[in-house]
Computed example of a mutant assay.
Amino acid sequence: MVKTLPKQGETYFLNLRFILILTVFIGNAIEPLIHQMDGLHALFLWIFTFHMPLFVFVTGYFAKGGLDGTAGRKTLLQIGLQYIIFQSLYSFLDMTVFRVENIHRSFFAPYLLLWFLASHMGWRLLTLGMRKLSPTTQVVISLALGVLIGYLPLDGAWLSFSRTFVYLPFFVIGYHFSFDAFVQFFTKKKRMIAAAASATLFVIIALWGLQMPEGWLFGSMTFMQLGHTEWYAGLYRLALYGLQFASAAAFLAWVPFGQSHLTDLGRRTLYVFLLHGFIIRLAVVSGLYSYIHHPAAAMLLIAGAVLLAVALAQPIVRKMARPVVEPPVTWILRLERMSIGRTS
């Protein structure tokens, strides 16, 4: 189940990946202030209409290079190690340095942003399980699962159970996405229309959408947790899918096709994703947000998030943090071979 990535497609999606990690960093940085400043609230809601769906979509696209076989097993093992390492690190620092209370610490409850690692393993395994089906059937099934999971009477955050199924359609679509067909379809005129639609959506949210329930955008809660026990609650998720697909498609217009420094930064977004949480937590416990009351200060906060994202994507950070962020898994495979050799 190995597919190849067109060079131009790889460039475009690396550009997109870094732009998305900027929105992730910005969204997390401004979250403590969204109920104090309407502008930040609108920006936060707008970002959440597309950034995680697109991030999952990009992850699915890059999974073409190795979903199964040895490459797929190595990826799953590495994701598992990353989860164990960072779940331990974040929990340890919360208890000893940041002194954060009222957080349920368990390997079965992913710590904040680490839900993505738990769900990534699920997306890969579920896509592998559907590999004999046609791409269209896979998308339809994943959409149905994304809706049906909301009806289960459970805690959606447990092992990121809810988000795994809610975002599965975006992973499946990304995996089967044809960049060549996309280039032919996404003409300059259509890109201009899409960019205008993306900007218009932000304006609509700023003017009339600030009451949008944030819980629906997170994808981490079941319908019962969201306060909807109606039999037709699944229709709300279908409507949300429509909004997310439209917003994500429109946002693609902002992404450059050509190779640049942005492309190189896009190769190291994993470091930004896994490490920026420490910075956000430090900013919160330091009392920084108590000094931000003016839009100018909020703009400085956003600028700081952008600069720190660029800093975390530098080669020196990768060199220093690689053993933790990209832990080697060859020793696990070696132990596995040795174990099989002894039992055979």
Rank of each mutant, 00 (worst) to 15 (best):
T70F: 02
K7G: 03
G287T: 10
G234T: 09
D155H: 12
L217V: 01
K74E: 10
F92R: 12
L22K: 05
D155N: 14
L240C: 13
K132A: 10
A250E: 08
R337W: 10
G39T: 13
I34H: 10
G304I: 08
R318P: 00
I79C: 01
A144R: 07
L265R: 09
I21F: 14
L282G: 06
I84C: 09
L275P: 10
Y83T: 06
A194Y: 11
W123Y: 03
A71G: 05
V285M: 00
I26N: 14
Y12D: 04
H261S: 06
A253D: 07
Q259A: 10
T75P: 06
L148C: 14
S286D: 07
M95K: 13
H176K: 07
M37R: 08
Y90G: 03
H228I: 15
F55Y: 15
S162F: 00
F86A: 07
A118W: 02
F57I: 02
L159K: 01
W254M: 09
L152A: 07
Q244M: 12
V97N: 15
I316K: 04
F107V: 13
Y289P: 10
A195H: 12
E31P: 01
T164V: 07
P153T: 00
L333H: 08
I84K: 02
E101C: 01
H293R: 12
E326W: 00
L112H: 07
Q225F: 15
A297Y: 15
A118D: 07
T49V: 06
I84V: 04
K190I: 01
F98Y: 13
G39Y: 06
R267T: 10
L128H: 14
A181L: 09
R99Q: 15
L335E: 15
W123R: 01
E336S: 01
G209Q: 13
K189G: 09
G266N: 09
W208C: 05
L275R: 06
G227Q: 08
F50I: 05
L301S: 11
T187A: 13
R342L: 15
W208L: 09
F218Y: 12
Q259Y: 09
V317D: 08
G122T: 14
V97A: 15
R337E: 13
I103D: 13
L77V: 02
G215R: 13
P327M: 01
L77R: 02
R318F: 00
Y236V: 13
G277T: 04
T59P: 03
S198V: 00
L270P: 01
A71C: 06
R322G: 00
E230R: 14
N102G: 13
T49W: 03
L235N: 15
R73P: 00
L240D: 03
Q259G: 11
W158V: 08
I205D: 14
V24A: 01
A42E: 05
F218A: 09
M37F: 11
R334T: 11
A42D: 04
